[in-house]
Simulated scan of single mutants.
Amino acid sequence: MRCQPRYDGPVYIWLKNKQHCLLCQEDVEETAPICMACETELPWLGDQCQTCALPLFAPGMTCGQCLKQPPAFQQVAVPWLYDFPVDSLITRFKHSAKWPYGRLLGELLAHYLQHRFDEGLPRPDYLVPVPLARKRLRQRGFNQAGMLANWLGTFLSLPVNEQLITRTKETPAQQGLNAKARKHNLRGAFTLVNAEQVQGCHVALIDDVLTTASTAEAISRLLIEAGAWRVDVYCLGRTAKPEE
Score class of each variant (00 low, 15 high):
Met1Gly: 15
Gln4Met: 15
Gly9Asp: 02
Gly9Ala: 04
Gly9Glu: 01
Pro10Ser: 02
Pro10Thr: 06
His20Cys: 13
Cys21Asn: 09
Leu22Trp: 05
Cys24Tyr: 06
Glu26His: 07
Asp27Asn: 12
Pro33Lys: 00
Cys35Ile: 06
Ala37Phe: 07
Ala37His: 09
Glu39Phe: 03
Gly46Phe: 00
Gly46Lys: 00
Asp47Gly: 13
Gln50Cys: 08
Thr51Glu: 10
Pro55Asn: 02
Pro55Gln: 08
Leu56Trp: 03
Leu56Phe: 02
Leu56Val: 01
Phe57Ser: 15
Ala58Thr: 09
Pro59Met: 04
Gly60Met: 02
Gly60Lys: 01
Gly60Tyr: 00
Thr62Gly: 07
Gln75Arg: 09
Val76Ile: 09
Leu81Asn: 11
Asp83Met: 07
Phe84Gln: 11
Pro85Gln: 04
Val86Asp: 15
Phe93Lys: 08
Lys94Cys: 11
Lys98Glu: 15
Pro100Glu: 06
Tyr101Pro: 12
Arg103Thr: 08
Leu105Trp: 00
Glu107Met: 13
Leu108Lys: 07
Ala110Asp: 07
Ala110Leu: 00
His111Thr: 14
Gln114Tyr: 05
Arg116Ile: 04
Glu119Leu: 14
Leu121Phe: 03
Arg123Asp: 10
Tyr126Phe: 10
Tyr126Met: 09
Val128Trp: 03
Pro131Trp: 06
Lys135Arg: 08
Arg140Cys: 13
Gly146Tyr: 03
Leu152Glu: 09
Gly153Thr: 03
Pro159Arg: 08
Asn161Asp: 14
Thr166Glu: 12
Thr166Ile: 13
Pro172Lys: 05
Gln174Ala: 04
Gln175Val: 11
Gln175Cys: 13
Asn178Tyr: 05
Ala179Val: 04
Ala181Thr: 06
Ala181Arg: 07
Lys183Thr: 14
Lys183Ala: 14
Asn185Asp: 10
Arg187Asn: 15
Gly188Val: 02
Gly188Asp: 14
Ala189Asp: 02
Asn194Ala: 13
Asn194Lys: 05
Asn194Gly: 07
Gln197Ser: 13
Val198Glu: 06
Gln199Ser: 12
Cys201Leu: 14
Cys201Gln: 15
Val203Cys: 10
Ala204His: 02
Leu205Glu: 07
Ile206Ser: 10
Ile206Asn: 10
Asp207Val: 03
Asp207Pro: 05
Val209Thr: 05
Leu210His: 10
Thr212Leu: 04
Ala213Cys: 14
Ala213Asn: 14
Thr215Gln: 06
Thr215Lys: 01
Thr215Asn: 10
Glu217Gln: 08
Glu217Lys: 05
Ala218Arg: 01
Ile219His: 01
Ile219Gln: 08
Leu222Gly: 10
Ile224Thr: 03
Glu225Thr: 02
Ala226Pro: 05
Ala228Phe: 00
Trp229Gln: 15
Cys235Glu: 06
Thr239Asp: 14
Lys241Gln: 14
Pro242Phe: 01
